[in-house]
Design a protein around this nucleic acid. Structure first.
Length: 652
DNA sequence: AGGTTTCCTC
């Protein structure tokens, strides 16, 4: 019996023979507890240790504690003939400790630890990593500290790596630096696992340079090392550097693994690097891991972020298994690439099919709501949120605020916000944006003050919404102050959107010269957004000269955009300069720039009717125009006069 | 290991 078990275990323990998939845990102990116990009476402590390890691996606390009981009843290490008894006792105790830690029973783990007649570094490490793996970081750090201060026991490389793993989660950079120093002074820094853990922790704490320094100075590097750096860079949004490193690895001696490909793909998503992403797609196909669910999700995400929904959809359709993540990815892809209807269809299908819904999917689908999606469905999703018990999720709450806000239900947004048990920066930003969107700039500023008084730090989006609010209320000085606050006090570099917002604000207030001066003084080359903002303002004030300048700049930036021509044509129209208007339109046509024709549509009893200007296609067109003219009559009687300012004489 | 919410102009 004992030989059989041992033989099986040794084969399984050997890393070479251990299958990669789908085995994730050890062998199962199939015999019943009772029969196990009868054997145990005669078993050696070695076998008990092995059995305890097995129980630990598969989380069999019941059988494990039976074994523990049998040890207490008849301690194997005291009656066993072969010495040395202490060594055996230590191993058995360590296995026991490991069992309780793995099963999450830290209370008994500590009891075993305290009762151990003899401990070694492994005992300490087991307990410390047990605490960390169960998220009891405080106790873990406390035991690590005791180990450091102990005069009897010495820490080793494993104590350092398991403690480092907890530093990443808490972003405790101080502890990372201390462990780094300890590692160097004790010669453990050359240990590959320590180097890997150090690099990983530095990246988790956003100390990118330190992480890279550790990586660069490592004498030996394995897949884990490379992957730590590639994913560390990706997680800190250094996508380009991450991909560069991936390329270096790919041409080197160490082969990437599944995790490396996932990290590289996420960098491609961040960079919207379709070409590189597709290359990795090819590589994973060659390796035969393209059907791994994680790889599939990462690929779909990459294609979605590169606006290639057809490619993303192909993967989704051919996927044999779907889960919450892959569904979320496709929902976000459709939602953010302007395919709101498709996203809704998939979501509704999933709900109807009884697919497991999670909060991430909900916040993803809430992203489809905009001005042209009816809010009836939004209300249904809100009730689903309450039914599923997701109402306290921050992401879901934020999604609901925005859904109501974009559907024009301001009070509902406020209600959701007030009821949220936890709010984050995005929640506050969403409220500020909501008020800005609804034209209540003062309320937006008020919520900003409230946000700061609660100790919540603003983000760049906060400032964007504030600038938006200032723009609509005409608070030019306040807006300029916010820009300064953002740069000087918060140390943030404004994005082009911020600059465009300032130009918009100055322009709306009629400060066209100041807007141009502001653009001239920018530290970066202005882009489309900025010129569009200036051009828009010229349109409001009918400034032909400035408008021409802005339109020229815009046409240079985006040669195939109709916007500069149409805007200029409109400015000429409202000044009555029909000749220049005609020349502008002619120029646009000569350059082959096409204006996309505006299409409107209406849904009546699940049928969609679309129509364009002066449409004659509808079979009941005459009746439609009849009603339309009657409505015009009513409008005129009520005192509403059509605004023909942009329409030239020939079009009237 | 893969995913989610906020963002100027119209």
């Amino acid at each position: 019996m004992s030989a059989m078990i041992r033989c099986g275990l040794i084969r399984w323990w050997s890393p070479l023979s251990r299958p990669q998939l789908p085995w994730r845990c050890g062998p199962s102990i199939s015999f019943s507890s009772a029969s196990a116990l009868t054997h145990i009476r005669e078993s050696s402590s070695e076998i008990i240790s092995i059995l305890l390890c097995c129980c630990g691996r598969e989380g069999n606390l019941r059988l494990g504690s039976c074994l523990h009981a049998s040890i207490i009843k008849k301690p194997p290490f005291t009656n066993q003939p072969p010495p040395p008894p202490h060594a055996t006792a230590l191993v058995t105790y360590n296995c026991l400790l490991n069992l309780y830690c793995k099963c999450g029973d830290l209370y008994d783990a500590v009891k075993v630890f305290e009762d151990m007649p003899l401990k070694d570094t492994i005992s300490w490490n087991s307990l410390i990593s047990g605490f960390f793996k169960l998220g009891k970081l405080h106790s873990g750090f406390a035991y690590f500290k005791s180990l450091l201060e102990s005069t009897i026991y010495r820490f080793d490389h494993a104590s350092l790596t398991s403690t480092l793993s907890a530093c990443g989660a808490t972003e405790s950079i101080g502890v990372v630096k201390m462990i780094h120093a300890l590692a160097i002074s004790n010669g453990y820094h050359k240990e590959i696992t320590v180097g890997n853990a150090l690099a990983t922790s530095y990246f988790s704490c956003r100390f990118i340079e330190s992480g890279m320094r550790v990586f660069n100075e490592m004498v030996e590097r394995n897949v884990v090392t490379w992957t730590a750096a590639i994913s560390g860079l990706a997680q800190n949004e250094f996508y380009g550097e991450s991909l560069k490193l991936f390329e270096e690895m790919y041409h080197g001696v160490v082969s990437p693994n599944c995790l490396t490909y996932l990290s590289a793909l996420s960098s491609c998503s961040g960079l919207q690097a379709r070409k590189e992403g597709a290359q990795i797609h090819g590589v994973v196909c060659k390796l035969g891991i393209q059907s791994d669910l994680c790889i599939e999700s990462a690929l779909m995400d990459m294609y979605s972020k590169c606006c290639c929904m057809e490619d993303a959809w192909r993967i989704f359709e051919s996927a044999e298994v779907l889960d919450e993540v892959s569904i979320t990815v496709i929902l976000v892809g459709f939602a953010q690439n302007g395919f709101e209807e498709q996203a809704i269809q998939i979501f509704v299908k999933m709900v109807k099919a009884g697919t497991k819904i999670d909060p991430n999917m909900i916040s993803a689908i809430l992203g489809v709501f905009g001005i042209d999606i009816s809010h009836g469905l939004g209300v249904q999703i809100h009730s689903l949120v309450i039914k599923k018990g997701f109402a306290s999720n921050v992401f879901v709450g934020n999604g609901l605020i925005n859904m109501y806000s974009k559907c024009g239900e301001l009070e509902e947004s406020v209600k959701v916000f007030d009821l949220m048990p936890q709010k984050n920066q995005v929640s506050w930003n969403s409220m500020i944006a909501t008020f800005a969107r609804h034209g209540d700039g003062w309320k937006a500023l008020h919520y900003y003050e409230k946000m700061r008084s609660k100790g919540v730090e603003p983000t760049d989006v906060t400032f964007l919404s504030l600038l938006h609010a200032c723009s609509h209320v005409g608070l030019v000085n306040k807006g300029m102050q916010f820009l300064e606050l953002m740069e000087k006090e918060c140390g943030m570099r404004p994005r082009m959107e911020h600059y465009a917002c300032i130009v918009d604000m100055l322009g709306r207030a009629g400060f066209l010269k100041e807007a141009k001066n502001f653009i001239d003084g920018l530290p970066v080359k202005p882009d489309v957004l900025v010129w569009q903002a200036l051009l828009g303002a010229c349109g409001i004030y009918g400034d032909i000269d400035m408008g021409k300048y802005a339109a020229d700049q815009l046409a240079q930036a985006v040669p195939d955009s109709p916007v500069p021509y149409i805007s200029m044509a409109n400015i000429y129209s409202c000044k009555g300069r029909w000749k220049e208007r005609a020349t502008t339109i002619k120029k646009m046509k000569e350059r082959g720039v096409a204006k996309e024709r505006g299409v409107s549509w209406i849904e009546i009893e699940k049928k969609i009717y679309s129509f364009v200007v002066a449409d004659q296609m509808h079979p009941k067109g005459d009746d439609v125009y009849d009603v339309l003219f009657k409505l015009f009559g009513h409008m005129r009687d009520k005192g509403y006069v059509p605004d023909n300012i942009f329409i030239s004489n020939q079009d009237r």
